[in-house]
C-alpha cells in the first residue's frame, strides 16, 4: 500500500491558535511539552483514513509570520490541502478567512482548473471559551458559499485546549485529498497523481529560470 505524504498548510490570522491546534493533534495535548524544539518545522503524523489507507500528514504552520504576506509563496507551494483556522471568539479572524483563502489559491501556483476543487476545511478554534461571536451557522454558510460541486468545505469547531474535534478535523482533510486520486486510480492510470505533481514541478522549474 503506497504511503502518501500530504502537505497540509494551516493558515489563518495570528493568534487564532494554529500552532496550538497542530501541537494538540501531534502530541495529543495542549502545550505540555516542555522540551524546547526550535528547529522543528513541519511536523508529520500518520493518519488512517476512512477507507483504510494510511497517509502521513505534514502540517505546515506559518507561526508568527502571518503578516509576512510575501512568505505565502514559499509556504503554500506544493500544498495538497489547506486548513483555514479562525477564532470563534473573534469575528475579525472569521472575516479575514475570505482573504486567506484568496491568498492561498493565488499563491499556491496550482493549475487554474484545480483551484475550485482544492481541498479546504474550516476550523473554528477556541470553542472552550464561552465568548463565541461566530455562530456555527455563519461558518456553515461561508463553507457552503465557497464549496464547489466536487469539493465540499467541511466545518469543524474545535478546541486546541481540550482536544475537541481536532483529530476529526485532520482525519477529514486526509480523507478529502484521497478522493480525486481514487477516481483516477479507477481509470487505470495510477500514474495520474504523479503527472499532476510533475506538472506542478515543471511549473516550478520554469519559475526558477
Amino acid at each position: 500500500m503506497p504511503k502518501d505524504i500530504l502537505k497540509v498548510v494551516i493558515i489563518g490570522d495570528g493568534g487564532v491558535g494554529k500552532t496550538c491546534l497542530r501541537n494538540q493533534f501531534i502530541h495529543k495535548r495542549f502545550t505540555s511539552s516542555y522540551k524546547a524544539t526550535i528547529g522543528a518545522d513541519f511536523i508529520t503524523k500518520d493518519v488512517h483514513t476512512d477507507d483504510g489507507r494510511k497517509v502521513t500528514l505534514q502540517l505546515w504552520d506559518t507561526a508568527g509570520q502571518e503578516r509576512f504576506q510575501s512568505l505565502g509563496v514559499s509556504y503554500y507551494r506544493g500544498a495538497d490541502a489547506c486548513c483555514l483556522v479562525y477564532d470563534t471568539t473573534n469575528f475579525q479572524t472569521f472575516h479575514n478567512l475570505e482573504r486567506w483563502r484568496a491568498d492561498f489559491l493565488k499563491q499556491s501556483s496550482l493549475p487554474p482548473d484545480l483551484l475550485e476543487d482544492f481541498p479546504l476545511i474550516l476550523i473554528g478554534n477556541k470553542i472552550d471559551i464561552d465568548d463565541r461571536v461566530v455562530s456555527r451557522r455563519q461558518a456553515r454558510a461561508w463553507a457552503q458559499q465557497h464549496s464547489s460541486p466536487r469539493m465540499e468545505i467541511r466545518c469543524f469547531e474545535a478546541s486546541a485546549k481540550d482536544g475537541t474535534n481536532v483529530e476529526e478535523a485532520f482525519s477529514c482533510i486526509a480523507g478529502m485529498v484521497k478522493i480525486p486520486q481514487l477516481e483516477f486510480d479507477m481509470d487505470g492510470s495510477d500514474s495520474f497523481h504523479l503527472n499532476r505533481r510533475d506538472d506542478s514541478l515543471r511549473g516550478r522549474k520554469s519559475c526558477a529560470c
Binding site: T19, A36, I38, D61, T62, A63, G64, Q65
Partner: peptide, 9 residues
C-alpha cells in the same frame, strides 16, 4: 516564528 512556537511551551 521562534517566539511564537516558543510561546506555545
Amino acid at each position: 516564528a521562534d517566539m511564537t512556537s516558543n510561546a506555545e511551551m
